[in-house]
């Protein structure tokens, strides 16, 4: 009576689906390559290629000058790449230093607990209590402007969110059996932090560091644009864009468009790398 028919009611998906993880890895590989290419290109551009060419000023985009030329005839593509190279170096430096601060304070808080934890949380609150832009401006003024000011300013404002993430993570690890046992065996706090806690936060740390970078380069360019960061003679994106403001009304759109768009693209690429790393680490995507 019971017929055993194997009938498929809902159509079955293709046997091999191009899943989340495959896409993520390809995206990471692609964007990381572009990132490195820009870095290499930036470091290879010789200083004198940014020379003045008065016969060729304000040339609109063409094959010879894809991004056009500026008021003294310098090729905007070369200026942009040099600017990106500088921005990216600053961004990497700030991201790494912010991450170091974050990991130190994020682990130290819960491990030592008590007053130290309270002070660290309070410091995070203090930095977050004033708009980042204002903090960076203040630090920049304190340092008398320039590279030092912007690097310290960006670093000071970017360690907070990652610190919170790591702190929350460490709070969990602290309550896990193996850390408790380790503590009972009389291992020192430093030992526990290094052997048990640090390895556990590495995934978050990697994602966090990568995700600080886009914020850092955007902040650097923005503050430089306002006139608090890198000085006008540096080949920075912020400087280029600030300069383009002078020609805003005269229709020289390429002066602002390409350098800004390049910055946006680099920032998006790295943001994308960060999010994709997160996807791979995150257990939830296992089911997608």
């Amino acid at each position: 009576m019971m017929e055993q028919v194997e009938r498929i009611q809902v159509p079955q998906g293709p046997l091999f689906k191009f899943g989340v993880r495959e896409k993520a890895i390809i995206a990471i590989g692609l964007f990381a390559t572009v990132f490195i290419v820009i870095l290499i290109a930036g470091s290879l551009i010789p200083e004198d290629s940014l020379d003045v060419d008065l016969y060729n000023i304000f040339a609109s985009p063409s094959l010879a000058h894809p991004f056009g030329t500026d008021w003294v005839g310098t090729d905007m593509l070369l200026r942009t790449i040099t600017g990106l190279y500088l921005s990216m170096k600053i961004g990497i430096f700030c991201a790494v230093t912010s991450a170091i601060i974050a990991v130190l304070l994020g682990i130290a808080g819960p491990i030592f607990g008590g007053k130290i934890d309270y002070v660290i949380s309070w410091l995070v609150d203090l930095v977050l209590s004033v708009p980042h832009t204002l903090v960076i401006i203040l630090v920049s003024i304190a340092c008398g402007g320039g590279l030092t000011g912007i690097v310290i300013g960006v670093t000071v404002t970017h360690w907070t969110s990652l610190t919170r993430v790591i702190r929350a993570e460490v709070m969990q690890v602290k309550e896990m059996e193996y850390t408790k046992i380790s503590r009972k065996f009389g291992k020192s706090k430093l030992f526990i932090a290094r052997e048990h806690v640090f390895p556990h936060v590495i995934p978050q740390l990697v994602v966090g560091t990568v995700l600080i970078f886009p914020h850092a380069i955007l902040h650097e360019a923005s503050i430089t644009f306002l006139g608090f960061g890198l000085p006008p003679h540096e080949p920075a994106i912020g400087v280029i864009l600030s300069e383009s403001m002078k020609y805003l009304t005269s229709g020289k759109w390429w002066l602002a468009f390409f350098p800004g768009a390049s910055l946006v693209l680099v920032s998006m690429m790295v943001e994308n790398i960060g999010r994709n790393i997160e996807k791979i680490i995150n257990q939830k995507t296992a089911y997608m």
């Binding site: 886009p214 955007l218 644009f225 602002a256």
Partner: peptide, 21 residues
């Protein structure tokens, strides 16, 4: 995601160039 990576001042410049100029 594009807007997250876009500095506000640059967007402002684009808007001025497009809508005002």
């Amino acid at each position: 995601h594009i807007l997250i990576s876009t500095p506000s001042f640059w967007l402002g410049i684009l808007f001025i160039m497009l809508f005002a100029v």
